[in-house]
């Protein structure tokens, strides 16, 4: 039985590899969910009842069910029920399925935050833009957007920090993220078996990364402090 000190470099290497997968899922989710959330927010704010009701219905389903089940459905439904395994095998297929489930799930949460942000910008702001002859999209991008962003940084920060930890859920479809990598040392991996400490050790990865995320978001918040 080797000591923890001897195991450490091997474990850290394996966990680093897993954490890269965690980071990839985190980054892809944000890149996809930020714009998709905006589209969904416009949907729920639409004047057309059909669009706004459909959007609210989708948001209800996505927010009302566990992300874990959404992951399972996205990954297994095409293959096991429709008999057309669209994701392909292997880690890349799992990553693709996980990305889609995460993007859609987080976009729905973001959309509600965006919606609140848009509605909190006083109506006088867009009326001032209209009276000056601006188009609706000019008003959104030049007047409303930054004021909305300023208001939503705190609630979005919350979601982003939750997302860092939620990525662990992708383990349910065997995505080889950091917790998966840590758990592997219990059964046996890289010549080490029966070790539970690597699993506990993964917590540091989340903690440190969330520390960095918190600092960055705090900086963004201060940066937007130049106006009221």
């Amino acid at each position: 039985m080797s000591t923890i000190l001897e195991q450490l470099p091997i474990v850290v290497n394996a966990l680093n590899e897993g954490f890269i997968q965690t980071l990839k899922l985190f980054a892809v989710t944000l890149l996809g969910a930020f714009p998709l959330g905006l589209i969904i927010a416009f949907g729920s704010l639409s004047k057309f009842k059909v669009i706004s009701i459909t959007t609210s219905f989708i948001i209800w389903i996505i927010r009302g069910t566990p992300l874990m089940i959404q992951l399972l459905i996205v990954y297994y439904f095409p293959g096991l029920v429709l008999h057309s395994p669209i994701w392909g095998g292997g880690e890349s297929g799992r990553f693709l399925a996980a990305s889609i489930a995460f993007i859609v799930n987080y976009a729905c949460y973001f959309s509600e935050i965006y919606r609140g942000g848009i509605l909190s910008v006083p109506i006088g702001q867009s009326e001032a833009g209209l009276v000056l002859g601006m188009t609706k999209s000019q008003i959104f991008f030049n007047v409303t957007l930054l004021q909305m962003i300023k208001r939503i940084v705190p609630p979005i920060s919350n979601e982003i920090i939750t997302l860092v930890k939620d990525t662990a859920l992708a383990r349910i479809i065997a995505l080889q993220e950091v917790i998966w990598a840590g758990q592997a040392f219990m059964k046996g991996s890289h010549g080490i078996s029966g070790a539970i400490w690597p699993l506990f050790f993964t917590a540091f990865y989340y903690l440190i990364f969330n520390g960095i995320v918190t600092l960055l978001l705090g900086r963004l918040e201060r940066k937007l402090d130049y106006f009221r």
Binding site: E127, V131, G133, L146, F227
Partner: peptide
């Protein structure tokens, strides 16, 4: 409407300047 609006200017009671 956008073009027609430009015949008029409007100064609001609450200013409505763009804060950013």
């Amino acid at each position: 409407i956008r073009q027609k609006r430009l015949h008029f200017g409007l100064v609001f009671q609450s200013f409505n300047l763009f804060p950013q």
